[in-house]
């Protein structure tokens, strides 16, 4: 079980390495969207600092949504997904490995680039730290829930819009707890609650999402 996890993780990372250009689209989207906001709302530092966390979170959420549709697409197209379904190893473990690889390739870069964006939005170092920490705990949840949507809409027409409709409502709690942390900090309140709730969301989705995605993949291949 552990070895198939490691194999699939290594395989997806290696594939991404061979197709490096594809990996950067989500990151580019994130950078671009966050850079557009100051142009839209004006360059006043105080105002930007106020909306920074919300903008970064919504951009991260949309960047996930944009890229997660491809999570199972190529495996489905070339028949590898069939072999994964037929494996004696639990499909949920394979799915979890794929989601891990996906997060390392799209979620983690967002977290790493976030301090740069925070700088553009005139956030203080502490606020920057909080935003990055919430993104670090929150983006894996986004990837896990996105995987369920990707599995459900696999091979359907209008997949992109459909996955947004399915997954965005599920993202609401993560968005609220994540983006709310900086607001609470700025209001002089305790942010431990936010981190605890984000952690709880991550644990619940870690337990449920791989199983739900596996079930959805079986339904999609039937």
């Amino acid at each position: 079980m552990l070895s198939v996890f490691a194999t699939v993780l290594r395989r997806d990372l290696l594939l991404a390495w061979r197709r490096r250009a594809d990996v950067l689209t989500a990151l580019g989207f994130f950078l671009l969207v966050t850079s557009l906001f100051p142009l839209g709302v004006g360059p006043e530092p105080e105002q930007l600092a106020q909306i920074a966390a919300g903008v970064m979170w919504v951009a991260a959420l949309l960047a996930t949504l944009l890229s997660v549709t491809r999570l199972f697409e190529s495996d489905e197209a070339d028949g590898t997904l069939e072999q994964m379904l037929l494996s004696v190893e639990p499909l949920a473990v394979i799915v979890l490995a794929k989601v891990c690889a996906y997060w390392l390739l799209t979620g983690l870069p967002l977290v790493l680039i976030a301090p740069l964006i925070a700088l553009q939005f005139s956030l203080s170092p502490q606020e920057t730290g909080i935003v990055c920490a919430t993104l670090l705990i929150g983006t894996p949840t986004l990837s896990l829930l996105g995987a369920v949507g990707a599995a459900l809409t696999l091979g359907l027409r209008g997949g992109g819009a459909l996955i947004a409709l399915l997954v965005l409502p599920l993202y609401v709690p993560v968005l609220i707890f994540g983006a709310g942390a900086v607001d609470r900090w700025r209001a002089g309140l305790d942010v431990d609650g936010n981190f605890a709730l984000l952690g709880a969301c991550l644990l619940v989705s870690l337990a449920v999402a791989p199983l739900a995605s596996a079930a959805a993949l079986r339904i999609a291949q039937d």
């Binding site: 459900l152 459909l162 409709l165």
Partner: peptide, 13 residues
């Protein structure tokens, strides 16, 4: 939105 998602998914399959 959850209702819409359910109906849209069923309609797409």
């Amino acid at each position: 939105f959850l209702y819409c998602g359910y109906m849209a998914l069923q309609a797409a399959i």
